[in-house]
Simulated scan of single mutants.
Amino acid sequence: METERESGLVSVVITNYNRGDFVIECLNSILSQTYQKWEMIFIDDASTDDSVAIVYEWLQRNEASLRDHQVVIHQLPRNIGFAGAINMGFYLAKGEYIAVQDSDDYSHPLRLERQVTFLQEQPEVELVGTNYYAFPSETPNKRELSTWIKYGDDIRKVYGAGGHCVCHGTILFRGRLFDQIGGPTRRIKGAEDYEFIAKSLNARANIENLPEALYYYRLHAHQRSTKYYRRKESKG
């Protein structure tokens, strides 16, 4: 039986592990979206800090503004890693579209509107990312525009050669893509985001990036990617 998805709804999936210092800015950026038909799915991967308490306090403070939005907070009983956490979020998503949002980053207010409009106008495209600004956590006004994002046919060429050119935190895709191919696995630890894009391309899904910077990517000592690799501009 085909999954029933709510037309026009964007399910914003946020995975979190010990990002209490940054999560408010992340949540506020979703609340500030010009595109208003969204739900938020917050998956906490057994944090040991006060992340979840901070999120519940945020919910209380913004109760009136959230009246038209469903917010799901799911606390995993043990730490299962990024792939497991994000798959849980994808499974809980009921929207026609699914957006990824890292809990230590934040989105431009126009992000969802621009991406949804693009997919509505380009029915042959299944997934769209955006360009982004990277900034050091200690100097948030020192933003640098990414230069490694690719566009059009170059995306498939880069992944075909084993490269990476889509920032995972920026992606928004049709829910049916997840229904068809599933999410990332634990097969390539530290590169689950790469695997999901590559798997989408292998399933012949069309992928594009928007050149407009609609995401703000925080560089800090504890980000997930620094355990596996370091790129000047990106955690992938």
Rank of each mutant, 00 (worst) to 15 (best):
L27R: 00
G190V: 07
E113S: 09
H164S: 14
H74G: 00
D45Q: 07
S107R: 11
T3K: 11
N18P: 02
R186A: 08
Y132P: 12
Y215H: 12
Q180E: 13
G182K: 09
G162W: 08
F196M: 11
L92Y: 03
E25H: 14
Y159A: 05
R218H: 12
A46C: 11
R111W: 12
W58K: 02
P140E: 10
I54L: 10
L76N: 09
I24E: 09
Y229K: 10
V10K: 01
T15N: 02
N209D: 04
M40L: 13
R230E: 13
D105F: 08
D154Q: 15
L127S: 06
F90L: 11
Y194C: 02
G169R: 07
F196G: 01
G95M: 01
M40P: 00
H74L: 08
E6F: 03
R176N: 09
R19I: 00
V128E: 04
T48K: 12
L119E: 07
S137M: 15
I181E: 11
Y97K: 05
L59K: 03
L127I: 13
D49A: 10
Y91F: 06
K157D: 14
N28A: 02
T139H: 14
I30V: 14
S146E: 11
N79G: 12
G89A: 04
G175S: 07
K94C: 01
F196T: 04
R186V: 05
D44E: 02
H164Y: 14
L92D: 01
F173N: 02
K199T: 07
T130W: 09
G183N: 07
V13F: 02
L112F: 09
L59W: 01
H74K: 12
A198H: 08
I30H: 00
L27F: 02
K189T: 08
S11P: 02
Y151H: 15
G129I: 06
G20T: 01
H164P: 06
H168N: 08
S146K: 04
